[in-house]
Design a protein around this nucleic acid. Structure first.
Lengths: 236, 236
DNA sequence: CAAAACAAGATTGTGCACAAAAATTCGCTC
DNA sequence: GAGCGAATTTTTGTGCACAATCTTGTTTTG
């Protein structure tokens, strides 16, 4: 397995937040799971440490981080700042085709919500923000937005309340409306209030249940990747 | 020399943009300059590569990057997006003390400009934006802003026109005024136009002169660091 | 019985040596 | 003399072995 593949798997696993905090990621153990030498996993772990996706303690190793609601607030605040700026920019720059694309997306969200298809809706709901970042057509902004959004996914996974899953679609439509009408101020406001509301839907969960094992989660992700690769390359 | 010190020196040198593009940073050569083993510099170079502060070509090594005006436009656009969001946020959240602090800074800029002290003014001018990022009191936003701002410093160094140095102070004051009056929309607009104007002051320079040598630049930076360390620690 | 000290095991950190790849130099041919 | 190709040399990539550090379990002592 190549180094960037290991990075992709670990990065994705850490971002989804399936693993509870404080789990140790031993170099040797990961090397066995991925079937590579220790140096490979070592390099990847340190890189992830620099990106703050896990914590590296000198002479102790790498551990998954457990963001609390305090840090969660920080992430949502950063998103409000960045995505408000995005909204201001997009209100001035969106093409008609992009507006149409956004309309389709919001409609798809509403449809999934109406049918009670929660997995699809949840997926589309996150993709709405990725889509906006893409439409800035600015790789730097895209990277920053993706980093922040993936961090919130981690939080939602950990502190989600089923009550929160049943609302929030109208807010995306409000953002869309403001953007399509090129009303910059209104778009900025709609984005900020939306993200504030999303944050309030997080509820503190005190008892941290054990969660699935490290190997279990990793195997699943690796297999999923293999499936995708096989489907794309159609060989091996 | 410790690893994080090497990282600090190299990161700073690359960000200042003193070096022309395409300069090779050999692992062994840097190891000699810093007086450490090759593995140390190797790790640092790869980390800097991941952060896109230099380009790493497989089996060829690390090279300094030379951002062209096309990429420069991308950086300034990203700054407009992020810092517009910052302005919107700050217009709502600034304390009276922070406003006072900003007023002092803008006054200091004006004073430096009046006295024709260009180095000081240039320094203060960049710090204005760092200051705004700090005032969000959000580490995530601060990191993103610092990364983008340092990238523009690189561009200014490379494409600066002496004509551009003599204006731009009023724009900071306009941003300050809007923020202090808590006029969000006006602050966003002032920030966006300011950054657009800064970008227009860059001029394409075709002939890339040789620039100082790698070792020369690094030695200078290392010595500067030693001086700072000695002053702080007051020993060795 | 508790607590500290010590020893054994495991894990990370680091330098070294070799392998692989690219750049360069030298030599040969036309 | 120019162009092409092989050998050399330089540089990066990788695995291995050992050192340093931390954890854990045991023993000893107050």
């Amino acid at each position: 397995m190549r180094e960037d593949e290991i990075y992709a798997v670990l990065s994705r696993v850490l971002r989804t937040g399936d693993l509870p905090g404080g789990i140790k990621l031993g170099e040797h153990r990961l090397a066995e799971i991925f079937g590579v030498s220790r140096e490979r996993t070592r390099k990847v772990l340190h890189r992830l440490g620099h990106e703050r996706l896990l914590e590296i303690v000198k002479n102790r190793g790498a551990f998954t981080i457990a963001p609390d609601l305090r840090e969660g607030h920080m992430v949502y605040e950063a998103r409000r700042i960045l995505e408000s700026g995005m909204a201001a920019h997009l209100a001035d720059s969106l093409t008609q085709a992009q507006i149409e694309r956004l309309r389709e997306h919001v409609d798809a969200e509403a449809e999934a919500l109406r049918q009670g298809d929660q997995p699809t809706w949840q997926k589309l709901s996150a993709e709405f923000h990725y889509l906006l970042a893409e439409m800035t057509e600015n790789p730097l902004v895209q990277r920053q937005a993706q980093e922040l959004i993936s961090r919130t996914l981690m939080l939602v996974k950990r502190y989600e309340t089923n009550a929160g899953s049943a609302c929030g679609c109208d807010e995306h439509r409000a953002i869309f409306r403001a953007l399509s009408m090129r009303e910059r101020g209104k778009a900025v406001k709609a984005m900020a209030t939306h993200l504030s509301l999303v944050e309030t839907r997080l509820r503190p969960i005190l008892c941290e249940d054990a969660g699935p094992s490290l190997e279990e989660v990793l195997r699943k992700e690796i297999d999923a990747r293999r499936g995708v690769d096989a489907g794309l390359v159609a060989a091996s």
